[in-house]
Design a protein around this nucleic acid. Structure first.
Ligand SMILES: [Mn+2]
Ligand SMILES: [Mn+2]
Ligand SMILES: [Zn+2]
Ligand SMILES: [Zn+2]
Lengths: 135, 135
DNA sequence: CCACTAATGGTAACGTGTTTCATTACTTCT
DNA sequence: AGAAGTAATGAAACACGTTACCATTAGTGG
């Protein structure tokens, strides 16, 4: 029973997408990133952007949150489990530590649940956007 | 500047939807509720289910969470702000108190953010579903 | 180079959820 | 009760993010 041995292939598009996401400090959508890529002269298909963004999310190299009906991605500095304080206007995000993982397991266990995952994100308006919005 | 004075009208569908949701202990989607209504013999349009569910959510009479790409609703007993421990298999939910609202405001303020809202839901598998899944 | 096949990209298809608009039926007024 | 006014409904069209399909391109290893 040899391991499935999935061999991945490095392409120009893959690098472009990864780098574009890495250079972004905000949470961005697939469409936004695609827009930026073609603005920079690169030509990458939207389907590929979706594929690679999903791949980055699966491999843990990118965090993802959903705002409204669109999914946003971000290449986070921190690799450990963490959460975010997100500006719902511009997407700027700050990394935040989780609020006691043990407590969750305890309360879940007391109800017979086995935790699979949890979502915890704080949304707000950042100082910049608040200043800009006051006009 | 008198208040907008929106006058609402009571209809049979409105009552049916509200009661159906109230009788449900799980988080349910619009489609699920619509299915159940027509299974019970009632004839209500899907658009109306969406409309009323949204209305209940707006008025605070129903909590809502998003799992995947579909929105789920539940008429919660507790009217104060709270969160949920949700079985991602059957939708059963347990009400849970927030971890510490002050802490959020503090960490947000220290980054210049003004909190608008936050999402915090714990997902897992309930005892029943875990037992049923072991076959 | 060659053969193999992962990856791409344009587009069709999909699933939620919303909007439109003609029709229905609550409310209020007389 | 009857008529008028207008929320509310419902079927279908629409919007939109995301995925599936599939012919074509291009890494990789020999
Ligand atoms: Mn992060
Ligand atoms: Mn609740
Ligand atoms: Zn901002
Ligand atoms: Zn369950």
């Amino acid at each position: 029973m040899a391991a499935p041995e999935k061999k991945t292939r490095s392409t120009a598009q893959k690098a472009l997408i990864r780098d574009a996401l890495a250079s972004e400090t905000r949470f961005v959508s697939a469409k936004q990133l695609h827009r930026r890529l073609e603005d920079d002269g690169a030509s990458v298909g939207l389907a590929t952007v979706y594929r690679q963004l999903n791949a980055l999310g699966r491999s843990g190299d990118a965090d993802t949150i959903t705002i409204g009906e669109t999914q946003l991605f971000r290449a986070c500095a921190q690799s450990e489990h963490h959460h975010h304080l997100v500006c719902e206007h511009c997407g700027t995000a700050v990394e935040v530590d989780p609020p006691s993982e043990d407590w969750m397991r305890t309360v879940a266990g007391s109800h017979g649940f086995e935790i699979t995952h949890h979502v915890f994100e704080i949304f707000g308006i950042c100082a910049d956007c608040r200043a800009a919005g006051t006009d």
